[in-house]
């Protein structure tokens, strides 16, 4: 018999019972539909110990490494602490150490922490203001010795939080940062696999982190980054990316402009259409899509139809909640 702990409460998992059985017997509200490992509605997380292998069958690899598992398929092999959802609201304070323009409407914000901040490049955090207003932003770098996180923040017309970050936050200010979230990140496996990265606007932030991570892990397969916006003034880090492409023969950078004017060296058209026309067969590719929700959702379907497997498609749609 093993003990299951959720928050402050403990429950006993009887021999032959799954985690789902125990929680249902104890009247814990957990959704489930099939009890056969198919629907994934009973997915929970074991932050401390690796769950049994069979309870992770069929999950995306980035979920597996974060110890997500299916409660209905899990016969515990030791005591487990269980998190029902990602909504842990633990914030820690960081200090802004840089805030500068990347282009006419995007800033680079760098936040430093006293202790190590564990995350995977490509994940996002929530920033919170004193009045409780909260927004999600993607981490643009890989874990650093200096415990710093980088963000790319675009000012939206009449956007409350982005304007506050642009206009009122300066070096030395402290700011509340949540734990990292999301499962759009690179795993150092199948290094010969092709990687397709497609982003609009500040969708480059998570992609830059993922790219740095893949290169640092010695990824050998081709890596294609398509970064799109309307006008050239809304792209950024163009020279750095071109430089990187010179240093790494397997890395290809294609800046795309959907507006009327496109100087030499830029592809003309929508970033997802350009990517699909240049890479017509995506069978066995790993795909990362970040930025505008319409682009992300359309492209998910398109890359799937071009052969990418659902388990290899990672996406972060920068959803805006209307308040």
């Amino acid at each position: 018999m093993f003990t299951l702990t959720i928050d402050e409460n403990s429950y006993t998992c009887q021999p032959g019972e799954t985690v789902l059985d125990t929680l249902l017997r104890e009247n814990i509200n957990l959704s489930y539909a099939c009890k056969k490992g198919t629907c994934h509605s009973c997915m929970v997380r074991s932050p401390d110990v690796m769950p049994p292998q069979t309870s992770q069958t069929g999950l995306k690899n980035t979920l597996k490494t974060q110890h997500y598992f299916l409660a209905c398929q899990c016969y515990p092999e030791q005591d487990m602490c269980i998190k029902l959802s990602d909504q842990s609201d633990f914030y820690r304070m960081g200090t802004v150490i840089d805030n500068k323009l990347l282009n006419r409407n995007t800033i680079l914000l760098v936040i430093a922490f006293e202790d190590a901040f564990e995350f995977k490049a490509g994940q996002f955090i929530n920033l919170q203001r004193n009045d409780g207003m909260t927004r999600s932003y993607s981490i643009a770098n890989i874990p650093q010795q200096s415990n710093t996180l980088e963000f790319h923040i675009r000012r939206l017309p009449d956007g409350k939080f982005s304007a506050w970050l642009h206009d009122e936050i300066s070096i030395g200010d402290s700011i509340a940062v949540s734990e990292p979230r999301g499962h759009c990140f690179y795993l150092p496996e199948r290094r010969e696999q092709g990687l397709l990265l497609v982003g609009t606007g500040t969708g480059l932030a998570p992609l830059a982190g993922i790219l740095t991570d893949a290169l640092a892990h010695g990824h050998t397969g081709p890596i294609h980054l398509f970064h799109g916006s309307r006008d050239v003034e809304d792209l950024y880090r163009i020279d750095e990316m071109r430089q990187l492409a010179k240093q790494h023969l397997n890395f290809h950078y294609i800046p795309c402009l959907s507006g009327k004017q496109a100087p030499e060296g830029f592809a003309v058209g929508r970033v997802n259409e350009i990517a699909l026309s240049r890479l017509p067969d995506l069978k066995s590719w790993r795909v990362f899509l970040c930025g505008h929700p319409d682009m992300v959702n359309q492209m998910k379907k398109q890359v799937f139809l071009k052969g990418a497997s659902m388990a290899d498609i990672y996406a972060d749609a920068f959803l805006i909640t209307l308040h």
Binding site: C34, K35, K36, T38, C39, S41, N297, M310
Partner: peptide, 21 residues
């Protein structure tokens, strides 16, 4: 897409006479 894939799984589980409610 992700929700649809889950529903398609439900479809197949059902067509295979698998567990479903």
């Amino acid at each position: 897409m992700d929700k649809q894939i889950a529903k398609q799984k439900a479809f197949f589980t059902m067509a295979f006479g698998g567990p479903n409610s």
